[in-house]
Design a protein around this nucleic acid. Structure first.
Lengths: 259, 259
DNA sequence: TCAATAGATGAGCACCGCTCTTGATTTGGA
DNA sequence: TCCAAATCAAGAGCGGTGCTCATCTATTGA
């Protein structure tokens, strides 16, 4: 006497997982557009029509993969954040930024699935917005925590810029209320800038737009993370990441380096 | 006696253009993945196999559309830049940024085709790198021009950050030599940050990642453009754009605005 | 004028997502 | 324990796709 939905439900969950795994395997080979339901059923030794009992359409499969990808990235970000000193806000920012980039580089097609162009006609089902917000929440949490304990350098007013115009202030206010209760409108707008910068740079790297522009994105990414953290008002990490520390004194400086 | 390649070449060029136009029409309806070679031939009243005499494969058609899109965006950026006061560098930066966003919003699928995930298996043919660099060159030109005439505020060293580590300096040096002869490594790295921020924010807006976060992206985008311009060291535009000017005195300020 | 070339055509191949019907299996309540 | 209801597997089939190929026609340039 198995539980109300017993053996059958379990094998169903297993097959569902196997289908997604096989889909991910295909995606790793030739991208999301290369996922073929028939090929999946072939690989799993089932009839081609059988898969529709688990995913009503190709788009539903993709949506499931998107949710999983968001969750995977969100988990990576949360882990990186938790692995840094709770009150070393610069380190937390850098760690999460690197976690995003690392995850993207090790799951390029899943990153593209989520942060690339919306694949089929249009996709943004309700199921995706929850998991999608995990990374964002981590990032926002860092800034908000820093602000709460007064570690956020009161953002130097942008030189020569007028105070916030109304519309921008309204938007910023909404965000302050929603996720940054301890901060100001100016800070929240800069956080949005840093957020979009982070993903913009990762996307450019993965999608090939840095080709011919930046040969080795790693050090540039690292430095930019720190600069954007400072831009938001976060303190520099207490112990700078290895690359920044070891070479800071310039033992191996090249060419007309430092002017 | 038509020129060595006469009438035949002309009608060929016309048909090629018609094919691309029809493809763009289909793309406008349901995205790049909705482009069907057979549907194109149907719309043009030709045999389905005929199209392969003009584009050897679907990917080649897409590549042609990518090149056109890059050119279209590049032209828009150049025009916006030329339409601003040659020596009002803040205004030029803002104008080009807005041109990029406006172009993206009025050509969403073409933007996705170019800045979204590489569509088929992988794409980055040689033909695309030339046109792709037009926007980038415009942006780089503004910063470099400003620096050349001394209008670039010597970038305040990021608070608490060590000097540039070697690897980053090497990358930056390459860029200085290639496109920013009048600037420093620090400036060039910040320019890369601003560049990726610009496209990151546009992509987030178009791809739906601002949904539920920012209701009206326009004022946020506008403000962020100015802040990122300042981040690079560009002066504020001499005459701020209308939204920033009219409300600058805060007649309609909301909530506990200005900390 | 005429061979070479380029273009247009339609049949056909292998694949796709998806639907429907049919038959077997499992389930949970009477 | 039995049995109706629900679930699942399987196969045939529909209309669509990108692409190839042999065939025929029109244009080209010497």
């Amino acid at each position: 006497m198995p539980p109300s939905t017993g053996l059958r439900a379990r094998v169903r969950a297993e097959l569902t997982a196997e289908i997604k795994d096989e889909a991910r395997r295909q995606m790793a080979v030739e991208g999301a557009s290369g996922i073929s339901l028939r090929a999946i059923t072939r690989a799993l030794g089932m009839a081609s029509s059988g898969i529709y009992r688990y995913f009503p359409s190709r788009d539903d499969l993709l949506t499931a993969l998107i949710v999983d990808a968001y969750d995977s990235l969100g988990a990576a970000a949360e882990e990186a954040d938790a692995g840094s000193g709770q009150d070393d806000f610069g380190a937390r920012w850098s760690a999460v930024g690197h976690a995003v980039r690392d995850w993207a580089r090790s799951h390029p097609h899943e990153y593209a699935l989520v942060y690339g162009s919306p694949v089929p006609g249009y996709r943004a089902p309700q199921d995706t917005i929850g998991p999608a917000s995990r990374v964002t929440s981590v990032l926002a949490g860092i800034v908000n925590d820093a602000s709460r304990v007064g570690a956020l350098s009161e953002s130097p007013p942008a030189p020569g810029l007028a105070p916030l115009p109304v519309q921008a202030a309204v938007e910023a206010r909404r965000l302050v209320d929603a996720a940054f209760p301890a901060t100001t409108e100016e800070v929240v707008l800069r956080s949005v800038a840093a957020w979009t910068q982070l993903f913009g740079m990762v996307s450019f790297e993965l999608f090939g737009h840095l080709e011919g522009v930046i040969t080795d994105p790693a050090p540039v990414f690292d430095r930019t993370l720190l600069e954007m953290g400072a831009f938001v008002g976060l303190p520099a990490p207490r112990t700078l990441p290895p690359e920044m520390r070891r070479d800071a004194r310039g033992s191996g400086r090249i060419g007309h380096g430092g002017n």
